[in-house]
């Protein structure tokens, strides 16, 4: 189980959002830490095969990210996502079950199971447009894990969540990291400080530090702030 990027570069006209990045990510939680505009979202979109790199490539266990095999084991929560206005929470999840090739019988059980897991059991029949920001985010995470992904990519997953939800969320992510590759981006150190097995720190499209952060190294937040001064 390994997600490997080599010489990854993405340019938007004259702007380089991601510059020659190489890394290998294994099972566990990897935190992508960086200020706004560091290139995290661009990197994640390339990891999902949504954006084509200008140069370089990403592979998962030998499969290219554009392949069906990879999409079959991929879960993704974008920073911003929408929903069709007529969808209830249950419809939303069932739609993604259909798109992810989960048969109808398994889909019903799966959707109920997930709604309960993310604390939306009683909201399944309510239209998504009536959900609060935190509820939508929880529904987003539910769709991301609906196909039991081996690779789970979460772009700012805790945005819009209240402190109580944040704690629950982190705990869920930590658990998921035990069985799959979880890559989570954030600009908030506390989101990943205690759950990430590995941290990739980004600045202006470059990796400025990567590895496992140990308590004896001091405060990650202080180190992070110093790097961004």
């Amino acid at each position: 189980m390994e997600l490997k990027a080599s010489g990854l570069t993405k340019q938007y006209g004259s702007k380089t959002a991601v510059d020659n990045m190489s890394f290998e990510i294994g099972k566990g939680v990897t935190g992508l830490l960086g200020a706004n505009g560091a290139g995290k979202t661009t990197l994640m979109r390339m990891m999902c095969g949504i954006l084509t790199p200008t140069s370089g490539e990403i592979e998962y266990d030998g499969y290219r990210v554009e392949s069906e095999e990879y999409r079959n084991v991929l879960g993704y929560l974008p920073q911003d996502f929408g929903y069709y206005p007529e969808f209830t929470g249950m419809d939303f999840l069932k739609y993604f079950c259909a798109l992810k090739g989960i048969d109808k019988k398994a889909a019903n059980t799966r959707c109920e199971e997930l709604l309960e897991l993310v604390g939306l059991k009683d909201m399944g029949k309510v239209k998504v447009k009536k959900y609060s920001g935190g509820m939508k985010q929880r529904l987003g995470i539910a769709q991301a894990i609906i196909n039991r992904p081996e690779v789970l990519i979460l772009d700012e997953p805790t945005a819009g969540l209240d402190p109580k939800e944040r704690v629950r969320f982190r705990s869920l992510i930590e658990e998921l990291g035990k069985v799959s590759i979880v890559v989570l981006s954030t600009h908030i150190v506390s989101d990943i400080e205690h759950i990430a097995d590995r941290i990739i720190m980004m600045k202006s499209g470059h990796i400025i530090w990567q590895g496992s952060w140990k308590e004896e190294q001091g405060s990650l937040e202080e180190f992070y702030l110093k790097e961004f001064e």
Partner: peptide, 29 residues
Amino acid sequence: LTEYAGKPGHLKKDTFIRSVTKDAGKEHV
């Protein structure tokens, strides 16, 4: 916060997490 929020349904979560690696009922599209 964890104490305040109360622990999430660990039992259910564990069951779910353990099932992650099992076949998700996916079929060829």
